[in-house]
């Protein structure tokens, strides 16, 4: 593994972060700083469990041919790693996260530069995975995938890219099902979230309003 080359690649990737992106994908910076200063929830941190769910995305892929194709196969693999399915809680695969992400990239509403950064991230991720393990991200095992994500999270671009993927995972988990995520309200049920009413109708989704 050529650590120096990987560092160089990450620095190069940093140059493509759209201006204002970090603020757009975080909830107020001040809150983040504040949480840093406090010690709440520190006890809940531990190493991710290494379940044998390497191929969970393959199962999804069978259900939806689109997910066997680049870049969606890679997006699905990253999403399933960031938000894995467990015995008692839903994973990305359960709330249609990848197709939801696809709709975000296709619909108006999100900055075009941000969309490009999100799309282009797949190539950066795979280049770095190749450098580290001589395979693309999708073909890595669970432990190697974690290694790659930890490595890119150490760079500004990689952190922003993952942070952005997490934001759209949360949208897929918790937005109204009319937008294609939150399948059968699985996110709301898992987190015992009571939505407001009335909920949006299909013909009044945000991009169809005046």
């Amino acid at each position: 593994m050529n650590t120096e080359l990987i560092q160089k690649m990450l620095r190069k990737w940093d140059e493509s972060i759209p201006s204002g992106l970090p603020e757009r994908i975080q909830e107020q910076q001040s809150r983040r700083d504040f949480l840093k200063a406090s010690s709440i929830l520190a006890a809940s941190l531990f190493i991710p469990a290494c379940d044998n769910n390497d191929h969970i995305d393959t199962k999804t892929a069978l259900a939806n041919p689109l997910l066997t194709k680049a870049p969606w196969q890679t997006f699905a693999a990253v999403q399933n790693h960031l938000f894995p399915k467990d015995a008692d809680s839903p994973g990305a695969v359960d709330f249609n996260a990848t197709l939801y992400l696809k709709s975000v990239l296709e619909l108006p509403g999100v900055d075009e530069a941000d969309k490009k950064f999100l799309r282009d991230g797949v190539k950066w991720l795979n280049d770095i995975a190749q450098q580290m393990f001589s395979k693309t991200f999708y073909h890595l095992g669970e432990v190697e995938r974690e290694d790659v994500l930890q490595r890119i999270a150490g760079s500004s671009a990689g952190e922003n890219w993952l942070s952005m993927l997490l934001l759209y995972l949360f949208e897929a988990l918790l937005t109204d099902p009319v937008y294609g995520g939150n399948t059968n309200k699985v996110g709301w049920q898992w987190l015992e979230h009571t939505p407001g009413f009335p909920t949006p109708t299909k013909d009044k989704r945000y991009y169809l309003l005046p």
Binding site: L35, L41, F83, L166
Partner: peptide, 28 residues
């Protein structure tokens, strides 16, 4: 809900969280 979840994606050292630790945190 989305902004609430999104506010929880950083650990106390400002490092991104994912996987089981993130899900536990959301549940709490």
């Amino acid at each position: 809900a989305i902004s609430k979840a999104n506010g929880e994606k950083w650990d106390d050292n400002g490092k991104l969280l994912w996987g089981k630790p993130l899900k536990n945190r959301l549940k709490t």
